[in-house]
Design a binder for these strands. Structure first.
Length: 307
DNA sequence: GACATTTGACCGTG
DNA sequence: CACGGTCAAATGTC
């Protein structure tokens, strides 16, 4: 009874939140007083609420009719249709090393198990916003047997919570800024060339405004630009669809990390991962991620099921 | 009090 | 029946 009641309650909460946001959007629709970005953010939040509510209601439906055509194995099916991918995170041994496990999301630990044949236990995390926003993303973290400095992180489900929307929104803005920086940069270069055409400039770094150098440097998707991070990806053949693979790369929420530093090294890794504070520090040591397999069935498929 | 973590119990699957 | 994943009460932390 709890299992039906909890998602039901969350779905109601999420839909109520969506309604509130829609009202707010209506109130702010006047373009003379409200920016386009603000409206976009509201729309994103409303869509997020719909996504979450649909997912939750699907859970309720499946739980309520276990004998329906796909109901008998609804749990395992649910798990299989959740997007799933893994990363190998190597932790450097220096101070702040384990903080690199922070992937920028807020996780709440809900279990730990000793795994047969493994030297280290596996920790289970779910998104902190599961109950408030119906975000179903989870992850498992386990130290590798052969190399204790490597953590295998398995992600399940895509974040649908507000933090993800805000992240995407922020990335969009950063890309816009990037383009602006580049455009201005090329303009300035052109002008410089006009004024002083004898200068070499091929090896110079991209222009950046003195007042905003960091924004201009960080606007590249960190996935590709982070100099201290090595990322290799490989896909199982069934996931090669270019139409869907994109959503898990480049501005991928799963691979773009806001690193949180400042926890003591000696702490248990579980504490490190789950205590996320929004301190941003990009000075990283070695960082190695490899993606073993990516399940590109997005949870949109879940939504399609209901149509 | 509001959260987060710990940990043994429980449950579905193979 | 063993195993992996999740639940939920107890406990910890702020």
């Amino acid at each position: 009874m709890e299992k039906v009641g909890a998602p039901e309650k969350t779905a109601i909460t999420v839909l109520a939140e969506g309604k509130k946001l829609a009202k707010e959007l209506k109130r702010q629709l006047d373009p003379s007083t409200t920016s386009r970005e603000a409206c976009d953010a509201l729309v994103d939040s409303i869509l997020s609420a719909y996504d979450n509510a649909i997912t939750l209601l699907a859970l309720i439906r499946d739980a309520a009719s276990p004998t329906s055509e796909e109901g008998s194995d609804h749990n395992s099916k649910k798990r299989k249709t959740m997007p799933r991918w893994s990363e190998h995170v190597r932790i450097c041994s220096g101070a702040r090393g384990e903080a690199q496990l922070d992937d920028g999301y807020n996780w709440r630990k809900y279990g730990q198990k000793d795994i047969l044949g493994a030297n280290h236990p596996r920790a289970y995390y779910r998104c902190t916003h599961r109950n408030t926003q119906g975000c179903l993303a989870t992850k498992q973290v386990q130290r590798a047997d052969e190399d204790a400095t490597v953590f295998e992180v398995i992600y399940r489900g895509k974040h649908s919570c507000r933090q993800e929307r805000l992240r995407q929104h922020k990335e969009r803005k950063e890309q816009e800024i990037s383009l602006t920086c580049r455009n201005v940069s090329s303009l300035v270069k052109t002008e410089n060339r006009d004024l002083n055409d004898s200068k070499e400039e091929e090896d110079l770094p991209a222009f950046s405004f003195p007042s905003t150098p960091i924004e201009c440097e960080n606007v590249e998707p960190q996935f590709f630009s982070e100099p201290n991070r090595l990322i290799t990806a490989s896909y199982s053949p069934s996931f090669l669809s270019p139409a869907t693979s994109e959503s898990y790369f480049s501005p991928s929420p799963c691979l773009v990390n806001d690193f949180d530093i400042g926890h003591s090294l000696e702490s248990d890794f579980g504490e490190i991962i789950s205590n996320l504070t929004p301190i941003t520090d990009f000075s990283l040591g070695d960082f190695d991620i490899s993606i073993d397999a990516v399940d590109f069935e997005s949870h949109l498929l879940d939504a399609i099921e209901f149509v």
